[in-house]
Write a protein that binds this DNA or RNA. Structure first.
Lengths: 207, 207
DNA sequence: GTCTATAACGGGATAGAC
DNA sequence: GTCTATCCCGTTATAGAC
């Protein structure tokens, strides 16, 4: 049956994605993929030329899913600050880290233009997408006009990726959550709707 | 001679540190360490029980150095914003990533309490150290009183770690630099000495 | 399509000679 | 202290039978 073939291929891809996420490219062996998927050796090599092709399918799929999930949150109505907050605070398996960002640490992935491409594209897309959200907010007067949408977008993506690192180092989601609180707190101080009651504002009003 | 023994051990540690940085724990073999260091097999196993002990020495050394380098920047005089900026913008080999943060992605390191400890401690120390710098700034009235030192400190560390990820994904230091510009821009808007000329301030002054 | 056999090679170490 | 030999196992396939 045709569906059996699809199932086999899908199981291989799913297992490879998991292993790539957990152990990276170097730490993932074809044998481990076979065992986790329950697909035999001959079958695996029938459907995929080898480890590289398997990884390519897995990485491509993971990158696609990531973009879909991000776009779902980023295209909802709301102010830019709300949209950005909704995206950053979405459900995440923090201690597992980011399945795309993880690949960044794999020299064998990054040195291969084909394997690398989906990783590069994912972050480029996300950075630009967030910058557009901020740019729109800026246009609607939601932020202090001095805010740099591109730099701020990159800072937000970086906090996310770095938050995973801190969480894994501490074996706790706490630093991840605090890091998000941190940037979002800083961002809130630049929104027009929630002016900070700081020394700057105080001095200005009493001038 | 005694110095020969020290040299051999030092060369092994140095090579292991490089390989751990480039390829991670899983991707680093004792054989590769021997080749890079020019130390023979028997010699290596005479000085270190195995891969794990070698890695422990390397990781410990890297963590120590990292703290020393951070403290050098963080203990210099200046406002909190200046100090934080000095630390974030110090010379870095951005595309190589962070040698400590990298280990966070290695399941064999993170699942071993002994190997993991230096990683955990380094980030805990850095986070607390930066929080203290911000706290001091706050006490001196350099920031809007609503700023959360701990959350902001974690956000700063996260931007650094995430900046490396973005840089490696893009194979360019540009996103790293932009991410730093981004957070520092946000932070600057909360300093008392450089009030933002945004809508919030404008509305307050014309009220 | 899937299975088993085989193979060249590297990983990670131990043993004992020198 | 350092060297070479040896070992067992996993990696990453390929070959050919079924």
């Amino acid at each position: 049956m045709y569906s059996n073939r699809v199932d086999t291929v899908e199981r291989l891809i799913a297992s490879t994605r998991e292993l790539l996420w957990e152990r990276g490219y170097t730490g993932t062996s074809p044998r481990a993929v076979q065992q986790r998927s329950g697909v035999g050796q001959g079958s695996m090599y029938h459907h995929f030329a080898g480890k590289r092709e398997l990884a390519l399918a897995a990485i491509t799929r993971t990158a696609e899913e990531m973009r879909v999930m991000a776009e779902e949150r980023l295209s909802l109505p709301g102010t830019a600050a709300e949209t950005v907050t909704r995206y950053l605070r979405r459900e995440r398996e923090v201690l597992r880290g980011c399945p795309v960002g993880r690949l960044t640490q794999d020299p064998d992935v990054m040195s291969d233009p084909v394997l690398r491409a989906p990783v590069e594209e994912t972050f480029r897309w996300l950075s630009e997408r967030l910058a557009r959200v901020l740019q729109e907010g800026l246009r609607r007067g939601e932020f202090d006009a001095a805010l740099d949408p591109r730099a701020t977008a990159d800072a937000l993506v970086a906090v996310l990726q770095g938050g995973y690192v801190l969480a894994r180092a501490a074996d706790s989601t706490a630093p991840f959550d605090r890091a998000l609180d941190g940037v979002l707190g800083l961002l809130a101080a630049r929104t027009a709707t929630a002016p900070p009651a700081g020394p700057a504002a105080a001095r200005t009003s009493t001038a």
